[in-house]
């Protein structure tokens, strides 16, 4: 009896009972399948063709790297990142500057501004698809009412416009996160720095450039890396805004990003081996770029101080 009680109340038992389920879940549902996917990426598994998959080494990888479509899709993903990051950072920075000021009602505005972030990204895609609708969209209505357009426009018709709007909607969905990080960073900058700069005769813009931006770089770096990964792996918004492909239809090639392409390879074309290889390429690129990005920005932030 006492031995059992001692066992139950021992530290070892406590740690094992609480941690083992978590370790098992992670091992079985993350690491094992990740390794298994890597194995699949070395085979020519294709569920459309009735044959047992064969080991083909790195052929899937070389095929992908040698195919035009891969580079096109990668280029499009990087283009989206290149549009989204400055746009999102700009919006987030401007709003953070505003909310860093003290004025009555600031708290309510801070609460309301964060709401788009909580809305499911899938819903955001729909919402904006409806706003931008060429026949009945609210954007058309608004612009027409103010005489800014003579007739209703099909905002999502042009392939370039599609990419642009995807970037806008993604920005709308996610700007709150870098905004919060930047706001926290702003509030951490001591007032004496600004006072000292003012005494030295620095104007508003010069204070912004010499103090605020360098002081914010470390928190900005963190936000940028996370936003890089989110933009690089964009899926939900595109799926409902421009991907098409409903009811088994073809997927719109003009906004096909890495993740959409990967989904198509595996769940539409059933080319499992090739899709698995692509997923590993995405993994490598996300990790690699993320690390380079953060080290560089951190170095700059430290140097300029």
């Amino acid at each position: 009896m006492t031995m059992a009680r001692d066992l139950v109340s021992s530290k070892k038992f406590f740690v094992i009972v609480l941690l083992v389920p978590i370790i098992l879940l992670v091992a079985i549902l993350v690491y094992y399948p990740a390794i298994d996917t890597f194995g699949t990426s070395l085979t020519n598994e294709n569920l459309r063709i009735r044959r047992p998959p064969e080991f083909i080494g790195l052929e899937n990888y070389t095929n992908l790297l040698g195919s035009n479509e891969f580079w096109q899709v990668l280029g499009r993903s990087l283009l989206l990142v290149a549009v989204i990051l400055p746009l999102e950072t700009g919006v987030a920075f401007a709003i953070a500057l505003l909310l860093n000021e003290k004025f009555p009602g600031r708290g309510i505005i801070r609460t309301l501004v964060i709401i788009p972030w909580m809305v499911p990204p899938v819903v955001n895609g729909f919402l904006w698809g409806w706003l931008l609708n060429g026949e009945y969209g609210a954007l058309n209505g608004l612009l027409y009412q103010f005489g800014l357009i003579g007739e209703y426009q099909y905002w999502l018709r042009d392939p370039t416009a599609q990419v642009f709007w995807v970037a806008v909607v993604h920005t709308w969905t996610r700007f709150s996160f870098p905004m919060i990080i930047l706001l926290a960073g702003l509030q951490g900058i001591p007032d004496d720095l600004y006072d000292a700069a003012k005494v030295d005769g620095a104007g508003t813009f010069s204070r912004l450039r010499r103090i605020t931006v360098p002081m914010l770089l470390p928190s900005l770096a963190v936000a940028l890396v996370i936003e890089f990964i989110a933009a690089f792996q964009i899926f939900d918004v595109i799926w409902t805004l421009t991907a098409g492909g409903s009811a088994g239809g073809a997927i719109n090639p003009f906004t096909k990003t890495l993740m959409i392409y990967n989904y198509e390879l595996i769940f539409r074309d059933l080319r499992i081996g090739l899709g698995a290889a692509l997923s590993y390429l995405i993994l490598l690129m996300s990790l690699g770029v993320g690390i380079v990005f953060i080290t560089r920005l951190y170095n700059e932030g430290i140097k300029s101080r």
């Binding site: 070892k12 941690l19 993350v30 690491y31 298994d36």
Partner: peptide, 27 residues
């Protein structure tokens, strides 16, 4: 709580935070 292998267990669980889950989802 201090115990042997704590660092390993921590990294074992935390490592998947930056990992794109897509890699696991396929299999």
């Amino acid at each position: 709580i201090k115990f042997r292998g704590k660092g390993f267990v921590f990294y074992f669980v935390m490592l998947l935070m930056p990992l794109p889950i897509w890699v696991s989802l396929i299999s």
